[in-house]
C-alpha cells in the first residue's frame, strides 16, 4: 500500500471514530430549540453552556464525582497491593500446591464477570454489607487474576539473586517485596493504576447493582439515572453530562498515552 493511501485510510478510520465525539460536543453547546429545529445545522448558534449547568445540577456532579473517585481510589489501592502480593507469593515464595493454585487463579479469568455478580450480590446481602461502597471496594482487596498475572510476569524479569542476597542480609519477605520487587516495578504499577482507573471510572453495572441510596451514586450511574428520568428527550444536558463524565479520562489519556501503550505491549494484549 502506498503511503498516500495508508494515510487516507487512517484519516477515514479516525474520522469515523471522532465524529460521534465531535457531535456530542457540538450538541452539548446548542440550545434545546436548535437541536429540535427541523433545519439541520452542525454548529451551535448561539453557543450556550446552559446544558452543562443543568446536567451538573441534575446529576449532583460534585457528590457523584467524589463517590466515583473514592471507589476508584480504593479499587486501585486494593488491587495493586493485593495483586502484587499474590504475584510475589505465586512466583517467589515456595509452598505446597503453589502452581496448582496459580493455575486455578488464572483459570478464573475465563469466567465472565456477570456470572460472579449474583453470588457476590447474595454474599453481600446475606452478610449485611449490601448498600454502601463496601461491595464495590472489598473484592479488589483480594486481587484480580489479570493483574496478578501481569505482576508475576514483571517479577520474572527481576533476578532471583536480588532476593537471595537480601535474605542473607537479613531482609524479611515483606521488606523484599516492598523495597526490592515493588520498588523495581514502577512501570507495571503505573499501568495497573491506569487500567483500573479507567475500568472503575466507567463501570456502570456494578454500581447499579450494589448502590441503593442516591447519595452514593457514581457518575456513570447518576448519568444513567438522569437519562432514564428524561426519557431520552433532552439531548443537550445529556450530551453535556457525557462530556463531564469523559473529561477526566480524556485528560488522563492525554498525559499517559505512552505508559498506556507500553502497558498494552507488556501485557500482551497486542502483539
Amino acid at each position: 500500500m502506498s503511503k498516500a493511501s495508508k494515510y487516507f485510510l487512517l484519516l477515514v478510520i479516525s474520522g469515523v471514530l471522532i465524529t460521534p465525539l465531535v457531535l456530542i460536543i457540538l450538541t452539548s453547546l446548542k440550545e434545546q430549540a436548535q437541536i429540535y429545529s427541523s433545519t439541520a445545522s452542525l454548529l451551535p448558534d448561539p453557543v450556550t453552556f446552559k446544558n452543562f449547568i443543568t446536567a451538573f445540577e441534575a446529576i449532583e456532579f460534585l457528590k457523584a464525582f467524589k463517590n466515583t473517585f473514592y471507589i476508584a481510589f480504593f479499587n486501585i489501592f486494593g488491587v495493586v497491593i493485593a495483586s502484587s502480593l499474590a504475584a510475589y507469593a505465586f512466583l517467589v515464595l515456595e509452598w505446597k500446591g503453589r502452581d496448582v493454585f496459580f493455575s486455578i487463579t488464572l483459570g478464573t479469568m475465563m469466567l465472565p464477570e456477570m456470572t460472579l455478580l449474583i453470588p457476590q450480590f447474595l454474599l453481600f446481602k446475606e452478610t449485611g454489607l449490601y448498600g454502601g461502597f463496601l461491595p464495590l471496594i472489598m473484592p479488589y482487596f483480594f486481587g484480580l487474576p489479570y493483574y496478578i498475572f501481569l505482576f508475576r510476569q514483571f517479577f520474572l524479569s527481576i533476578p532471583k539473586t536480588l532476593r537471595d542476597s537480601a535474605k542473607i542480609d537479613g531482609a524479611s519477605e515483606f521488606t523484599i517485596w516492598l523495597d526490592i520487587y515493588m520498588a523495581l516495578s514502577k512501570p507495571i504499577i503505573m499501568i495497573v493504576i491506569l487500567f483500573q482507573f479507567l475500568i472503575s471510572w466507567n463501570d456502570l453495572l456494578k454500581p447499579s447493582i450494589f448502590l441503593i441510596s442516591e447519595k452514593n451514586y457514581t457518575l456513570s450511574l447518576a448519568l444513567q439515572q438522569y437519562l432514564s428520568r428524561l426519557g431520552g428527550a433532552e439531548w443537550g444536558p445529556l450530551m453535556a453530562g457525557a462530556i463531564i463524565m469523559v473529561l477526566p479520562i480524556l485528560i488522563i489519556f492525554f498525559f499517559s498515552q505512552k505508559t498506556l501503550i507500553k502497558g498494552i505491549t507488556i501485557s500482551g494484549l497486542k502483539d
Binding site: T161, S165, I168, A171
Partner: peptide, 18 residues
C-alpha cells in the same frame, strides 16, 4: 540464612538497580 552470619557475592553481583 540471615542468622548464619555470612556474606555472599553472586555471579551477577545482585546489586539493587534502584
Amino acid at each position: 540464612a540471615k542468622d548464619r552470619k555470612l556474606s555472599m557475592v553472586f555471579q551477577n553481583y545482585a546489586l539493587y538497580p534502584h
